[in-house]
Design a protein around this nucleic acid. Structure first.
Length: 256
DNA sequence: ATGGCCAGCATCGCTGGA
């Protein structure tokens, strides 16, 4: 079972790249973030034609998440009951082949003195108890998406420059550790990886060409799934293509 | 020299992303 997460930064713009990538990689489950589409505009026919079922929760202009799956997903939940009435569409969960999959687009936060940062921390604080319930109900569990957190200094191209900044602050990293403390493993770190492996690069300043990136997109696996995980990677090739998303897809493979 | 891009929405400049 091949799991992937990708912040596409507008599915309207990125649909051709997504369809090419699905054909090349043939993932079994894809968690998409930043679709930026209202549900009635979701490109269902094109994705169905590519051989995928889908569930989605979107809005105009901002946010939006979706799950693409080879088999019909069940028990679909949008949003977090511990964080009710959130107008921002950032969470969708479903069960596929016995695996509970939670697709998340964690708020960016903008800057530590911003209201958006306070919202990010509240959002993450509410996420943890809900995940604990989901995980207890199904030990075959994965949380994947854009976390907007670089968990460690090795996940940042210039840790000194980023120290204490958004994506790297102590409070954000502590929130990430609380997710791991539920019993989740960062699939990428289950394996030897190249130094300076990142999943996001700024469109400006030749960020990708200079590899000035951060690793903020993650696939976290419960212990039973981590035991089945055979590989984890970041598909940097997608960032080299024409009109790329600023995020690369991240992938984890599980043996059946 | 501390910027530079991209997407959306709406115009001919702003917000948000990270």
């Amino acid at each position: 079972m091949k799991l992937a997460a990708w912040n596409v930064n507008s599915l309207k713009v990125r649909l051709p790249q997504l369809l090419e990538w699905l054909a090349e990689q043939s993932p079994d489950v894809v968690c998409l973030q930043e679709t930026k589409l209202e549900d009635h505009n979701f490109p269902q026919q094109e994705i169905e034609a590519a051989g995928y079922q889908m569930v989605f929760s979107g809005q105009k202009t901002y946010n939006g998440v979706a799950l693409l799956t080879r088999e019909m997903p069940s028990d679909v939940v949008c949003g977090n009951p511990h964080f009710p009435d959130d107008p921002q569409k950032r969470l969708i969960a479903a069960t596929v082949r016995g695996v509970r999959v939670v697709c998340a687009y964690v708020p960016n936060g903008q800057a530590l003195d911003s209201d958006k940062y306070a919202y990010k921390l509240r959002w993450l604080a509410a996420l943890t108890p809900w995940l604990a319930e989901q995980l207890a109900a199904n030990p075959q569990f994965v949380l994947a998406g854009d976390f907007n957190i670089a968990p460690e200094d090795r996940d940042v191209h210039d840790p000194a420059a980023w120290a204490g900044q958004i994506l790297c602050s102590d409070a954000e990293r502590a929130a990430f550790q609380r997710l791991l403390a539920l019993g989740l493993k960062d699939s990428f770190r289950l394996f030897e990886q190249a130094e300076k492996s990142f999943s996001w690069w700024d469109y400006r300043m030749l960020g990708f060409q200079k590899n000035l990136g951060v690793r903020i997109d993650h696939i976290l696996l419960s212990e039973p799934l981590a035991a089945r995980c055979t590989a984890a990677s970041i598909d940097r090739a997608m960032r080299k293509r024409e009109r790329p998303s600023d995020h690369a897809p991240v992938i984890a493979e599980l043996k059946d």
